[in-house]
Design a protein around this nucleic acid. Structure first.
Length: 476
RNA sequence: CGGGGCGUAGCGCAGCCUGGUUAAGCGCACCUGCCUUGGGAGCAGGGGGUCGGAGGUUCAAAUCCUCUCGCCCCGACCA
Protein backbone atom coordinates (compact mmCIF):
# COMPACT_ATOMS: atom_id res chain seq x y z
CA UNK A 1 0.00 0.00 0.00
CA UNK A 2 1.11 3.49 -0.74
CA UNK A 3 1.19 5.81 2.19
CA UNK A 4 2.86 9.02 1.15
CA UNK A 5 1.30 12.04 -0.42
CA UNK A 6 0.73 12.45 -4.14
CA UNK A 7 2.56 15.02 -6.25
CA UNK A 8 0.41 18.17 -6.13
CA UNK A 9 -1.43 18.81 -9.36
CA UNK A 10 -1.00 22.54 -8.98
CA UNK A 11 2.76 22.16 -8.98
CA UNK A 12 3.43 19.59 -11.68
CA UNK A 13 0.53 18.41 -13.81
CA UNK A 14 2.21 15.52 -15.58
CA UNK A 15 3.97 14.34 -12.42
CA UNK A 16 0.64 14.41 -10.64
CA UNK A 17 -1.01 12.59 -13.51
CA UNK A 18 1.47 9.70 -13.64
CA UNK A 19 1.43 9.39 -9.90
CA UNK A 20 -2.32 9.31 -9.57
CA UNK A 21 -2.98 6.96 -12.49
CA UNK A 22 -0.55 4.41 -11.08
CA UNK A 23 -1.54 4.71 -7.46
CA UNK A 24 -5.28 4.80 -7.90
CA UNK A 25 -5.04 1.42 -9.59
CA UNK A 26 -6.40 2.61 -12.94
CA UNK A 27 -3.47 1.46 -15.03
CA UNK A 28 0.17 0.49 -15.16
CA UNK A 29 2.97 0.34 -17.68
CA UNK A 30 3.22 -2.91 -19.62
CA UNK A 31 6.54 -4.71 -19.97
CA UNK A 32 6.95 -3.85 -23.65
CA UNK A 33 7.81 -0.29 -24.45
CA UNK A 34 4.87 1.96 -25.09
CA UNK A 35 2.27 -0.46 -23.79
CA UNK A 36 -0.07 -0.05 -20.86
CA UNK A 37 -2.24 -2.28 -18.73
CA UNK A 38 -5.83 -1.32 -18.01
CA UNK A 39 -6.32 -2.51 -14.47
CA UNK A 40 -9.83 -3.48 -13.36
CA UNK A 41 -10.59 -0.09 -11.83
CA UNK A 42 -9.61 1.67 -15.05
CA UNK A 43 -11.19 -0.85 -17.36
CA UNK A 44 -14.48 -0.58 -15.48
CA UNK A 45 -14.71 3.05 -16.60
CA UNK A 46 -14.20 2.04 -20.20
CA UNK A 47 -16.83 -0.68 -19.83
CA UNK A 48 -19.24 1.97 -18.64
CA UNK A 49 -18.46 4.07 -21.70
CA UNK A 50 -19.07 1.04 -23.88
CA UNK A 51 -22.39 0.38 -22.25
CA UNK A 52 -23.56 3.95 -22.72
CA UNK A 53 -22.28 4.32 -26.26
CA UNK A 54 -23.63 0.95 -27.38
CA UNK A 55 -27.02 2.27 -26.32
CA UNK A 56 -26.51 5.36 -28.44
CA UNK A 57 -25.46 3.29 -31.45
CA UNK A 58 -28.53 1.14 -31.12
CA UNK A 59 -30.85 4.14 -31.44
CA UNK A 60 -29.31 4.82 -34.84
CA UNK A 61 -29.32 1.20 -35.96
CA UNK A 62 -25.54 0.83 -35.91
CA UNK A 63 -24.49 -2.81 -35.45
CA UNK A 64 -21.38 -4.13 -33.78
CA UNK A 65 -19.00 -6.41 -35.66
CA UNK A 66 -15.39 -7.44 -35.46
CA UNK A 67 -12.73 -7.44 -38.16
CA UNK A 68 -9.22 -8.96 -37.98
CA UNK A 69 -6.33 -7.03 -36.51
CA UNK A 70 -3.91 -8.19 -39.23
CA UNK A 71 -4.23 -6.36 -42.51
CA UNK A 72 -2.28 -7.38 -45.63
CA UNK A 73 0.07 -4.54 -46.45
CA UNK A 74 -1.27 -4.30 -50.00
CA UNK A 75 -4.73 -3.54 -48.65
CA UNK A 76 -3.52 -0.64 -46.58
CA UNK A 77 -1.58 0.64 -49.56
CA UNK A 78 -4.66 0.84 -51.72
CA UNK A 79 -5.64 4.30 -50.55
CA UNK A 80 -2.58 6.42 -51.21
CA UNK A 81 -3.07 9.30 -48.77
CA UNK A 82 -4.15 6.88 -46.11
CA UNK A 83 -1.00 4.78 -46.18
CA UNK A 84 1.20 7.86 -46.38
CA UNK A 85 -0.47 9.29 -43.33
CA UNK A 86 -0.01 6.16 -41.29
CA UNK A 87 3.21 4.57 -42.49
CA UNK A 88 5.51 6.25 -39.94
CA UNK A 89 3.61 4.67 -37.07
CA UNK A 90 2.84 1.18 -38.35
CA UNK A 91 3.72 -2.08 -36.64
CA UNK A 92 4.34 -4.72 -39.28
CA UNK A 93 4.51 -8.47 -38.91
CA UNK A 94 7.09 -10.06 -41.17
CA UNK A 95 7.52 -13.45 -39.55
CA UNK A 96 4.78 -15.91 -38.62
CA UNK A 97 5.17 -19.44 -37.34
CA UNK A 98 8.91 -19.18 -37.78
CA UNK A 99 8.69 -18.38 -41.48
CA UNK A 100 9.16 -15.18 -43.38
CA UNK A 101 5.72 -14.09 -44.62
CA UNK A 102 5.13 -13.77 -48.35
CA UNK A 103 3.10 -10.68 -47.70
CA UNK A 104 3.76 -8.45 -44.69
CA UNK A 105 0.88 -7.91 -42.30
CA UNK A 106 0.08 -4.57 -40.78
CA UNK A 107 -1.31 -4.54 -37.26
CA UNK A 108 -4.32 -2.30 -37.76
CA UNK A 109 -3.84 1.37 -36.94
CA UNK A 110 -7.51 1.77 -37.90
CA UNK A 111 -9.85 -0.45 -39.91
CA UNK A 112 -11.10 1.45 -42.93
CA UNK A 113 -9.18 -0.68 -45.38
CA UNK A 114 -10.06 -4.09 -44.06
CA UNK A 115 -13.69 -3.23 -43.47
CA UNK A 116 -14.32 -1.65 -46.82
CA UNK A 117 -12.59 -4.40 -48.74
CA UNK A 118 -15.03 -6.82 -47.12
CA UNK A 119 -18.00 -4.54 -47.69
CA UNK A 120 -17.27 -4.31 -51.38
CA UNK A 121 -17.71 -8.07 -51.45
CA UNK A 122 -20.93 -8.13 -49.44
CA UNK A 123 -23.03 -5.26 -50.76
CA UNK A 124 -24.13 -4.76 -54.35
CA UNK A 125 -27.55 -3.16 -54.27
CA UNK A 126 -28.84 0.27 -53.19
CA UNK A 127 -31.33 -1.77 -51.13
CA UNK A 128 -28.48 -2.81 -48.80
CA UNK A 129 -27.78 0.76 -47.76
CA UNK A 130 -27.10 2.49 -45.50
CA UNK A 131 -24.45 0.26 -43.97
CA UNK A 132 -23.90 1.12 -40.35
CA UNK A 133 -21.23 -0.76 -38.41
CA UNK A 134 -19.16 -0.27 -35.33
CA UNK A 135 -16.38 -2.20 -33.75
CA UNK A 136 -14.76 -2.08 -30.32
CA UNK A 137 -11.14 -2.94 -30.82
CA UNK A 138 -7.52 -2.35 -30.05
CA UNK A 139 -5.38 -0.52 -32.57
CA UNK A 140 -1.64 0.00 -32.79
CA UNK A 141 0.19 3.18 -33.68
CA UNK A 142 3.87 3.07 -32.87
CA UNK A 143 4.38 6.05 -30.61
CA UNK A 144 7.86 6.97 -29.50
CA UNK A 145 6.76 8.41 -26.20
CA UNK A 146 4.45 6.89 -23.62
CA UNK A 147 1.88 8.70 -21.56
CA UNK A 148 -0.64 6.42 -19.89
CA UNK A 149 -4.03 6.55 -21.64
CA UNK A 150 -3.01 9.62 -23.65
CA UNK A 151 -0.25 8.22 -25.80
CA UNK A 152 0.47 4.49 -26.01
CA UNK A 153 1.42 2.19 -28.86
CA UNK A 154 -1.72 0.17 -28.41
CA UNK A 155 -5.01 1.66 -27.37
CA UNK A 156 -8.68 0.73 -27.28
CA UNK A 157 -11.44 2.49 -29.12
CA UNK A 158 -14.67 2.21 -30.96
CA UNK A 159 -14.63 2.91 -34.65
CA UNK A 160 -17.90 3.50 -36.43
CA UNK A 161 -18.05 3.07 -40.19
CA UNK A 162 -20.92 3.80 -42.51
CA UNK A 163 -21.69 3.82 -46.21
CA UNK A 164 -24.54 5.73 -47.86
CA UNK A 165 -26.14 6.15 -51.24
CA UNK A 166 -26.25 9.94 -50.98
CA UNK A 167 -23.48 12.29 -49.94
CA UNK A 168 -25.92 14.42 -48.00
CA UNK A 169 -26.85 11.46 -45.85
CA UNK A 170 -23.19 10.67 -45.17
CA UNK A 171 -22.57 14.26 -44.12
CA UNK A 172 -25.48 14.06 -41.71
CA UNK A 173 -24.06 10.86 -40.31
CA UNK A 174 -20.71 12.52 -39.70
CA UNK A 175 -22.34 15.32 -37.78
CA UNK A 176 -24.60 12.90 -35.92
CA UNK A 177 -21.56 11.04 -34.61
CA UNK A 178 -19.87 14.27 -33.62
CA UNK A 179 -22.94 15.34 -31.72
CA UNK A 180 -23.06 12.00 -29.89
CA UNK A 181 -19.48 12.49 -28.80
CA UNK A 182 -20.23 15.99 -27.58
CA UNK A 183 -23.15 14.67 -25.57
CA UNK A 184 -21.25 11.71 -24.20
CA UNK A 185 -18.47 13.99 -23.03
CA UNK A 186 -20.83 16.57 -21.59
CA UNK A 187 -23.24 14.23 -19.88
CA UNK A 188 -20.96 11.40 -18.80
CA UNK A 189 -17.37 12.61 -18.75
CA UNK A 190 -18.60 16.00 -17.50
CA UNK A 191 -16.29 17.69 -19.96
CA UNK A 192 -16.97 20.75 -22.04
CA UNK A 193 -15.34 20.75 -25.45
CA UNK A 194 -15.28 22.76 -28.66
CA UNK A 195 -16.76 20.99 -31.66
CA UNK A 196 -15.63 21.96 -35.10
CA UNK A 197 -13.93 21.22 -38.35
CA UNK A 198 -10.24 20.41 -38.78
CA UNK A 199 -7.97 22.29 -41.12
CA UNK A 200 -6.78 20.44 -44.22
CA UNK A 201 -3.40 19.77 -42.64
CA UNK A 202 -4.91 18.26 -39.52
CA UNK A 203 -7.37 16.10 -41.41
CA UNK A 204 -7.52 12.31 -41.23
CA UNK A 205 -5.44 10.71 -43.98
CA UNK A 206 -7.89 9.86 -46.73
CA UNK A 207 -10.82 12.01 -45.59
CA UNK A 208 -12.48 14.93 -47.33
CA UNK A 209 -13.44 16.53 -44.07
CA UNK A 210 -12.64 15.81 -40.42
CA UNK A 211 -14.68 16.99 -37.48
CA UNK A 212 -13.37 17.01 -33.95
CA UNK A 213 -14.14 17.80 -30.37
CA UNK A 214 -11.28 19.59 -28.63
CA UNK A 215 -10.68 19.84 -24.92
CA UNK A 216 -8.47 22.04 -22.85
CA UNK A 217 -6.30 20.44 -20.18
CA UNK A 218 -5.10 22.08 -16.96
CA UNK A 219 -1.63 22.70 -18.36
CA UNK A 220 -3.11 24.77 -21.17
CA UNK A 221 -2.67 22.18 -23.89
CA UNK A 222 -5.47 20.90 -26.09
CA UNK A 223 -6.57 17.30 -26.35
CA UNK A 224 -8.47 15.95 -29.32
CA UNK A 225 -11.34 14.01 -27.79
CA UNK A 226 -12.88 12.24 -30.77
CA UNK A 227 -13.05 12.63 -34.52
CA UNK A 228 -15.63 12.07 -37.22
CA UNK A 229 -14.70 11.90 -40.88
CA UNK A 230 -16.51 12.49 -44.10
CA UNK A 231 -14.58 10.08 -46.31
CA UNK A 232 -16.32 11.11 -49.51
CA UNK A 233 -15.87 8.35 -52.09
CA UNK A 234 -12.12 8.09 -51.61
CA UNK A 235 -12.04 4.65 -50.06
CA UNK A 236 -14.91 3.36 -52.16
CA UNK A 237 -12.97 4.23 -55.29
CA UNK A 238 -9.74 2.77 -53.95
CA UNK A 239 -11.46 -0.51 -53.04
CA UNK A 240 -13.68 -0.62 -56.05
CA UNK A 241 -16.65 -0.64 -53.70
CA UNK A 242 -19.63 -0.11 -55.98
CA UNK A 243 -23.31 -0.85 -55.99
CA UNK A 244 -26.18 -0.77 -58.45
CA UNK A 245 -28.18 2.36 -57.80
CA UNK A 246 -31.93 2.68 -58.22
CA UNK A 247 -31.48 4.07 -61.72
CA UNK A 248 -29.39 1.03 -62.73
CA UNK A 249 -26.05 2.84 -62.81
CA UNK A 250 -23.08 1.55 -60.99
CA UNK A 251 -22.18 4.01 -58.24
CA UNK A 252 -19.73 4.53 -55.42
CA UNK A 253 -21.14 4.89 -51.91
CA UNK A 254 -20.37 7.85 -49.65
CA UNK A 255 -18.63 6.86 -46.46
CA UNK A 256 -17.95 8.04 -42.95
CA UNK A 257 -15.87 6.87 -40.04
CA UNK A 258 -15.65 8.12 -36.47
CA UNK A 259 -13.86 7.10 -33.33
CA UNK A 260 -13.50 7.61 -29.62
CA UNK A 261 -10.56 6.08 -27.78
CA UNK A 262 -9.41 5.30 -24.26
CA UNK A 263 -7.47 8.53 -24.52
CA UNK A 264 -10.72 10.08 -23.36
CA UNK A 265 -10.13 8.55 -19.94
CA UNK A 266 -6.81 10.36 -19.69
CA UNK A 267 -8.53 13.60 -20.53
CA UNK A 268 -11.14 13.02 -17.90
CA UNK A 269 -8.54 12.28 -15.23
CA UNK A 270 -6.57 15.41 -16.09
CA UNK A 271 -9.63 17.60 -16.30
CA UNK A 272 -11.26 16.81 -12.97
CA UNK A 273 -8.65 15.57 -10.49
CA UNK A 274 -7.20 17.61 -7.65
CA UNK A 275 -4.26 17.47 -5.23
CA UNK A 276 -5.94 14.65 -3.31
CA UNK A 277 -6.30 12.47 -6.37
CA UNK A 278 -8.92 11.45 -8.88
CA UNK A 279 -12.36 12.96 -9.09
CA UNK A 280 -14.61 10.71 -11.12
CA UNK A 281 -17.87 11.94 -12.57
CA UNK A 282 -20.66 9.90 -10.93
CA UNK A 283 -21.99 8.48 -14.17
CA UNK A 284 -18.70 6.83 -15.08
CA UNK A 285 -17.38 6.06 -11.59
CA UNK A 286 -17.00 2.28 -11.13
CA UNK A 287 -17.80 2.80 -7.47
CA UNK A 288 -20.23 5.60 -6.73
CA UNK A 289 -20.58 5.02 -3.01
CA UNK A 290 -18.07 3.46 -0.67
CA UNK A 291 -19.06 2.40 2.82
CA UNK A 292 -16.31 2.46 5.42
CA UNK A 293 -17.25 0.76 8.66
CA UNK A 294 -15.58 2.02 11.83
CA UNK A 295 -15.01 -1.12 13.82
CA UNK A 296 -14.42 -1.62 17.50
CA UNK A 297 -14.27 -5.13 18.88
CA UNK A 298 -17.33 -4.90 21.06
CA UNK A 299 -19.56 -3.39 18.35
CA UNK A 300 -18.19 -5.13 15.25
CA UNK A 301 -21.08 -7.41 14.36
CA UNK A 302 -23.64 -4.71 14.96
CA UNK A 303 -21.83 -2.19 12.77
CA UNK A 304 -21.22 -4.67 9.97
CA UNK A 305 -24.79 -5.89 9.80
CA UNK A 306 -26.07 -2.30 9.77
CA UNK A 307 -23.57 -1.42 7.02
CA UNK A 308 -24.72 -4.41 4.98
CA UNK A 309 -28.30 -3.32 5.31
CA UNK A 310 -27.41 0.15 4.06
CA UNK A 311 -25.43 -1.40 1.22
CA UNK A 312 -28.41 -3.51 0.15
CA UNK A 313 -30.70 -0.50 0.12
CA UNK A 314 -28.37 1.49 -2.07
CA UNK A 315 -27.74 -1.40 -4.44
CA UNK A 316 -31.48 -1.89 -4.76
CA UNK A 317 -31.73 1.76 -5.79
CA UNK A 318 -29.35 0.99 -8.66
CA UNK A 319 -26.22 2.55 -7.20
CA UNK A 320 -22.74 1.08 -7.55
CA UNK A 321 -21.69 0.45 -3.98
CA UNK A 322 -18.63 -1.00 -2.28
CA UNK A 323 -18.53 -2.03 1.36
CA UNK A 324 -14.90 -1.92 2.42
CA UNK A 325 -14.40 -4.42 5.21
CA UNK A 326 -10.68 -4.83 4.71
CA UNK A 327 -8.58 -4.87 7.84
CA UNK A 328 -6.99 -1.44 7.39
CA UNK A 329 -7.51 1.57 9.58
CA UNK A 330 -10.45 3.74 8.64
CA UNK A 331 -8.22 6.77 8.16
CA UNK A 332 -6.21 4.85 5.62
CA UNK A 333 -9.36 3.85 3.77
CA UNK A 334 -10.67 7.42 3.70
CA UNK A 335 -7.52 8.62 2.06
CA UNK A 336 -7.39 5.76 -0.38
CA UNK A 337 -10.95 6.10 -1.62
CA UNK A 338 -10.55 9.84 -1.94
CA UNK A 339 -7.49 9.28 -4.06
CA UNK A 340 -9.50 6.83 -6.16
CA UNK A 341 -12.07 9.54 -6.77
CA UNK A 342 -15.19 7.84 -5.41
CA UNK A 343 -17.95 10.50 -5.34
CA UNK A 344 -19.63 9.55 -2.07
CA UNK A 345 -18.38 7.97 1.14
CA UNK A 346 -20.48 6.69 3.99
CA UNK A 347 -18.93 6.19 7.40
CA UNK A 348 -20.68 3.88 9.77
CA UNK A 349 -19.59 3.37 13.36
CA UNK A 350 -21.35 2.28 16.55
CA UNK A 351 -22.96 5.72 16.98
CA UNK A 352 -24.55 5.65 13.54
CA UNK A 353 -25.70 2.06 13.91
CA UNK A 354 -27.36 2.91 17.17
CA UNK A 355 -29.12 6.04 15.90
CA UNK A 356 -30.00 4.62 12.50
CA UNK A 357 -27.96 7.31 10.79
CA UNK A 358 -24.87 7.52 8.61
CA UNK A 359 -22.05 10.00 8.20
CA UNK A 360 -21.87 11.26 4.62
CA UNK A 361 -18.80 12.68 2.93
CA UNK A 362 -18.78 13.94 -0.63
CA UNK A 363 -15.57 13.91 -2.66
CA UNK A 364 -16.03 17.41 -4.04
CA UNK A 365 -17.19 19.00 -0.79
CA UNK A 366 -15.59 19.82 2.54
CA UNK A 367 -17.13 18.50 5.74
CA UNK A 368 -19.34 15.58 6.67
CA UNK A 369 -23.06 15.37 7.28
CA UNK A 370 -24.92 13.16 9.68
CA UNK A 371 -27.93 11.86 7.79
CA UNK A 372 -30.96 9.83 8.73
CA UNK A 373 -30.86 6.49 6.95
CA UNK A 374 -34.38 6.95 5.56
CA UNK A 375 -33.20 10.00 3.68
CA UNK A 376 -30.01 8.43 2.50
CA UNK A 377 -30.82 7.06 -0.95
CA UNK A 378 -32.57 10.24 -2.01
CA UNK A 379 -29.78 12.44 -0.71
CA UNK A 380 -27.13 10.44 -2.50
CA UNK A 381 -29.04 10.39 -5.75
CA UNK A 382 -29.48 14.15 -5.56
CA UNK A 383 -25.86 14.67 -4.79
CA UNK A 384 -24.65 12.48 -7.64
CA UNK A 385 -26.79 14.46 -10.02
CA UNK A 386 -25.54 17.85 -8.89
CA UNK A 387 -21.98 16.53 -8.60
CA UNK A 388 -22.10 15.50 -12.24
CA UNK A 389 -23.49 18.90 -13.24
CA UNK A 390 -21.04 20.85 -11.16
CA UNK A 391 -18.08 19.06 -12.67
CA UNK A 392 -19.35 19.96 -16.11
CA UNK A 393 -19.92 23.60 -15.16
CA UNK A 394 -16.45 23.79 -13.73
CA UNK A 395 -15.04 22.33 -16.92
CA UNK A 396 -16.96 24.83 -19.01
CA UNK A 397 -15.79 27.75 -16.90
CA UNK A 398 -12.22 26.55 -17.21
CA UNK A 399 -12.40 26.47 -21.00
CA UNK A 400 -14.07 29.86 -21.18
CA UNK A 401 -11.64 31.37 -18.71
CA UNK A 402 -8.70 30.09 -20.69
CA UNK A 403 -9.78 31.10 -24.16
CA UNK A 404 -8.13 34.25 -25.41
CA UNK A 405 -9.35 36.26 -28.37
CA UNK A 406 -6.37 37.84 -30.04
CA UNK A 407 -6.19 40.45 -32.79
CA UNK A 408 -2.56 40.35 -33.81
CA UNK A 409 0.43 38.07 -33.84
CA UNK A 410 2.18 39.85 -30.97
CA UNK A 411 -0.76 39.09 -28.72
CA UNK A 412 -0.85 35.56 -30.05
CA UNK A 413 2.78 34.94 -29.14
CA UNK A 414 2.35 36.57 -25.78
CA UNK A 415 -0.56 34.29 -24.89
CA UNK A 416 1.40 31.23 -26.00
CA UNK A 417 4.36 32.23 -23.86
CA UNK A 418 2.45 33.06 -20.72
CA UNK A 419 -1.07 31.80 -20.44
CA UNK A 420 -1.54 29.26 -23.23
CA UNK A 421 -4.98 27.70 -23.48
CA UNK A 422 -7.23 28.21 -26.48
CA UNK A 423 -6.63 31.15 -28.75
CA UNK A 424 -9.26 32.43 -31.12
CA UNK A 425 -7.71 34.23 -34.04
CA UNK A 426 -8.39 34.99 -37.66
CA UNK A 427 -6.57 32.74 -40.06
CA UNK A 428 -6.53 32.95 -43.85
CA UNK A 429 -6.62 29.12 -44.12
CA UNK A 430 -3.33 29.07 -45.96
CA UNK A 431 -1.24 26.10 -44.88
CA UNK A 432 1.93 28.09 -44.91
CA UNK A 433 0.70 30.44 -42.19
CA UNK A 434 -0.46 27.44 -40.18
CA UNK A 435 2.98 25.79 -40.39
CA UNK A 436 4.85 28.95 -39.50
CA UNK A 437 2.63 29.65 -36.52
CA UNK A 438 3.30 26.15 -35.32
CA UNK A 439 7.05 26.44 -35.78
CA UNK A 440 7.19 29.77 -34.00
CA UNK A 441 4.71 29.25 -31.17
CA UNK A 442 3.98 25.47 -31.00
CA UNK A 443 0.30 26.29 -31.47
CA UNK A 444 -1.63 24.41 -34.14
CA UNK A 445 -5.10 24.99 -35.46
CA UNK A 446 -7.49 22.90 -33.39
CA UNK A 447 -10.72 23.58 -35.23
CA UNK A 448 -13.14 25.94 -36.81
CA UNK A 449 -16.17 25.81 -34.51
CA UNK A 450 -19.36 24.59 -36.12
CA UNK A 451 -21.15 27.73 -35.01
CA UNK A 452 -18.43 30.15 -36.18
CA UNK A 453 -19.76 33.33 -37.73
CA UNK A 454 -18.35 34.67 -40.94
CA UNK A 455 -16.60 37.97 -40.29
CA UNK A 456 -14.37 40.43 -42.08
CA UNK A 457 -10.98 39.77 -40.58
CA UNK A 458 -7.30 39.68 -41.31
CA UNK A 459 -5.08 36.66 -40.85
CA UNK A 460 -3.22 36.96 -37.60
CA UNK A 461 -0.02 35.89 -39.34
CA UNK A 462 0.04 37.26 -42.87
CA UNK A 463 -2.62 39.96 -42.67
CA UNK A 464 -4.52 38.73 -45.71
CA UNK A 465 -8.28 38.42 -45.77
CA UNK A 466 -9.71 35.88 -43.32
CA UNK A 467 -13.34 34.91 -42.85
CA UNK A 468 -13.30 33.06 -39.57
CA UNK A 469 -11.71 32.96 -36.17
CA UNK A 470 -10.18 29.53 -35.65
CA UNK A 471 -9.24 27.88 -32.37
CA UNK A 472 -5.51 27.45 -31.85
CA UNK A 473 -3.62 25.70 -29.05
CA UNK A 474 -0.62 23.57 -28.37
CA UNK A 475 -1.73 19.98 -28.85
CA UNK A 476 -0.94 16.97 -26.73
C1' C B 1 16.28 9.61 -34.52
C1' G B 2 19.18 13.51 -31.22
C1' G B 3 20.24 14.89 -25.82
C1' G B 4 20.16 13.16 -20.74
C1' G B 5 19.38 9.51 -16.86
C1' C B 6 18.81 4.68 -14.79
C1' G B 7 19.05 -1.01 -14.25
C1' U B 8 20.81 -3.87 -6.64
C1' A B 9 13.97 -7.67 -2.90
C1' G B 10 7.18 -6.12 -5.12
C1' C B 11 8.20 -0.52 -5.23
C1' G B 12 11.70 3.51 -4.09
C1' C B 13 16.78 3.74 -3.15
C1' A B 14 22.02 3.56 -0.58
C1' G B 15 26.55 0.95 -1.40
C1' C B 16 30.35 1.68 -6.73
C1' C B 17 34.50 7.00 -6.89
C1' U B 18 38.96 4.33 -3.37
C1' G B 19 37.65 -4.12 -5.08
C1' G B 20 38.15 -7.64 0.66
C1' U B 21 34.83 -7.95 7.75
C1' U B 22 28.68 -4.15 5.85
C1' A B 23 30.83 -12.00 2.73
C1' A B 24 23.83 -7.75 0.58
C1' G B 25 21.80 -2.98 3.30
C1' C B 26 17.73 0.79 4.24
C1' G B 27 12.53 2.77 3.78
C1' C B 28 7.80 1.40 2.21
C1' A B 29 4.98 -2.86 0.85
C1' C B 30 4.20 -8.21 2.09
C1' C B 31 3.44 -12.57 5.90
C1' U B 32 2.42 -14.26 11.32
C1' G B 33 0.94 -12.93 16.24
C1' C B 34 -0.71 -9.47 19.78
C1' C B 35 -3.06 -5.06 19.85
C1' U B 36 -5.83 -1.54 17.19
C1' U B 37 -9.61 1.00 13.70
C1' G B 38 -14.05 8.18 14.44
C1' G B 39 -8.60 10.91 9.03
C1' G B 40 -2.77 7.48 6.27
C1' A B 41 -1.82 3.12 14.07
C1' G B 42 1.84 0.47 17.30
C1' C B 43 5.03 -3.55 19.01
C1' A B 44 7.46 -8.21 18.20
C1' G B 45 8.85 -11.86 14.89
C1' G B 46 9.43 -13.36 9.66
C1' G B 47 9.84 -14.29 4.12
C1' G B 48 11.97 -12.42 -0.13
C1' G B 49 18.31 -10.97 -4.16
C1' U B 50 21.76 -15.68 -9.42
C1' C B 51 23.30 -6.74 -7.68
C1' G B 52 19.90 -6.46 -16.11
C1' G B 53 23.02 -10.05 -19.34
C1' A B 54 27.81 -11.80 -21.45
C1' G B 55 32.92 -11.57 -21.43
C1' G B 56 37.44 -9.74 -19.21
C1' U B 57 41.11 -7.93 -15.23
C1' U B 58 42.23 -9.90 -10.20
C1' C B 59 44.00 -14.23 -5.02
C1' A B 60 39.11 -11.65 -4.64
C1' A B 61 34.04 -7.93 -8.56
C1' A B 62 27.49 -5.05 -7.09
C1' U B 63 32.18 -2.11 -7.16
C1' C B 64 37.30 -1.70 -12.34
C1' C B 65 37.31 -2.55 -18.11
C1' U B 66 34.73 -4.08 -22.83
C1' C B 67 30.47 -5.42 -25.23
C1' U B 68 25.28 -6.01 -24.99
C1' C B 69 20.05 -5.76 -23.67
C1' G B 70 16.22 -3.02 -21.56
C1' C B 71 13.63 1.05 -19.49
C1' C B 72 12.53 6.21 -18.22
C1' C B 73 12.76 11.60 -19.06
C1' C B 74 13.42 15.90 -22.52
C1' G B 75 13.27 17.13 -27.68
C1' A B 76 11.84 15.86 -32.83
C1' C B 77 7.64 13.12 -34.77
C1' C B 78 2.40 12.02 -34.07
C1' A B 79 -5.26 11.96 -36.07
Amino acid sequence: MVTDKVTPKSKDVSGWYNDIVLRSGLADYGPAKGTMVFRPYGFAIWEKVQEVFNGVLKTKGVENAYFPMFIPYSLLETEKEHVEGFSPELAIVTIGGGEELKEKLVVRPTSETIMYSMWSKWYQSWRDFPILMNQWANVVRWEKRTYLFLRTSEFLWQEGHTAHVEHEEAKEMTLWALEQYRKLYAEHYAMYGIVGKKSKKERFAGADETYTIEFLMPDGKALQGATSHDLGQNFAKAFNFTFQSRDKDSAYPWQTSWGLSTRSLGGMILAHGDDTGLILPPKLAPVQVVIVPIIFDESESEVISYAKKIEEELVAAGLRVKLDTRDYSSGFKHNEWEMKGVPVRIEIGPKEAEQNKVLLKFRIKEGKELVDSNELTKQIENHLKTDQEQLFEKSKKFVEGNTSVVEDYEQFKEVMTNKRGFIRAFWCEDEECESKIKAETKATTRCLPLDAKKEEGKCVYCGKKADYRWYFAQAY
